[in-house]
């Protein structure tokens, strides 16, 4: 009896809810990510790490 109760204890409503929540959020996010109007923005963003550091390097940071 106990074993049966535990094996059936699945909260299918919660699991279904979370699946649907993930599914619709995921689809929405994919549509947004693939939308053409974001193209320029993404290009700009992807170049963020490549920005040249206008370096005026100064020796001696260890001496602070």
């Amino acid at each position: 009896m106990k074993k049966e109760a535990l094996s059936q204890f699945g909260h299918p409503d919660l699991i279904l809810f979370s699946f649907l929540l993930f599914f619709f959020c995921f689809i929405g996010m994919v549509i947004w990510a693939l939308s053409k109007r974001n193209k320029d923005h993404f290009k700009k963003m992807s170049e963020l790490p490549l920005q040249k550091e206008k370096v005026k390097r100064e020796k001696g940071a260890d001496d602070e």
Binding site: K44, K54, V55, R57, A61, D62
Partner: peptide, 14 residues
């Protein structure tokens, strides 16, 4: 030789 260098923070892209 000179040890760690200091790097100036550049202006943001946006």
């Amino acid at each position: 030789r000179g040890g760690l260098v200091q790097t100036l923070i550049p202006e943001p892209i946006q």
